[in-house]
Computed example of a mutant assay.
Amino acid sequence: MGEWLLIAFDSTQQALRAEMLLEYADIEIDLCPTPKGVTAGCALSIQFPAEDYAEVQRIIETEQVEIRGIYFKKESEYVRMEQ
């Protein structure tokens, strides 16, 4: 398995909306608990393969999904990507 990225949200509604949009776009995702090291207002996060980053970013912007940020794992901690 390659590198996966993580989207964190401030609301469950936005997390579930993003899940629906990404599944519709046939992007492999995993709905998971938000890791302790990521500050977010929602207990749900979405993981997706790093190679789908551009398409995920496009969908989030086009559909105006409100996110806390997109993170990558560096060693044992999550680091927010610049947007």
Rank of each mutant, 00 (worst) to 15 (best):
G2S: 06
G2I: 06
E3I: 14
W4N: 00
W4D: 00
W4Y: 04
L5G: 02
L5V: 03
L5T: 04
L5A: 03
L6C: 04
I7E: 04
I7D: 00
I7C: 06
A8I: 05
F9Q: 01
D10P: 04
D10F: 06
D10K: 03
D10Y: 02
S11F: 05
T12K: 01
Q13A: 14
Q14D: 08
Q14Y: 07
L16A: 00
L16P: 01
L16V: 02
L16T: 01
R17T: 09
R17F: 10
L21R: 11
L21H: 10
L21G: 03
L22M: 13
E23S: 03
Y24V: 09
Y24W: 11
Y24E: 14
Y24K: 13
Y24L: 11
A25L: 07
A25S: 10
D26G: 01
D26L: 09
I27R: 04
E28G: 01
I29Y: 12
I29W: 11
I29A: 09
D30G: 02
D30A: 06
L31K: 12
C32E: 15
C32R: 15
C32S: 15
C32Y: 14
C32M: 15
P33H: 10
T34K: 04
P35K: 09
P35R: 08
P35G: 08
P35N: 05
P35M: 06
K36S: 14
G37L: 12
G37Q: 12
T39I: 14
G41M: 08
C42E: 08
A43P: 01
A43H: 02
A43L: 05
L44A: 04
L44C: 00
I46K: 05
I46P: 08
F48Q: 03
F48L: 02
F48W: 07
P49H: 02
D52H: 13
D52A: 10
Y53A: 00
Y53I: 06
Y53K: 09
A54V: 07
A54M: 07
E55S: 09
E55Y: 11
V56Y: 06
V56F: 03
Q57I: 00
R58E: 12
R58C: 09
R58H: 13
I59T: 04
I60M: 03
E61Y: 10
E61P: 05
T62C: 10
T62F: 12
E63S: 14
E63P: 09
Q64L: 07
Q64Y: 05
Q64G: 02
V65G: 01
E66T: 12
E66R: 11
I67R: 01
I70M: 03
I70T: 03
Y71K: 00
F72H: 15
F72P: 09
F72Y: 14
K73L: 07
K73Q: 08
K73C: 07
K73N: 03
K74H: 15
K74C: 13
K74L: 14
E75F: 13
E75A: 13
E75R: 15
E75K: 15
E75C: 10
S76H: 13
S76C: 06
S76R: 13
E77W: 04
E77Q: 10
E77C: 04
Y78A: 01
V79M: 06
V79I: 11
V79P: 02
R80F: 05
R80H: 06
M81S: 08
M81E: 11
E82W: 10
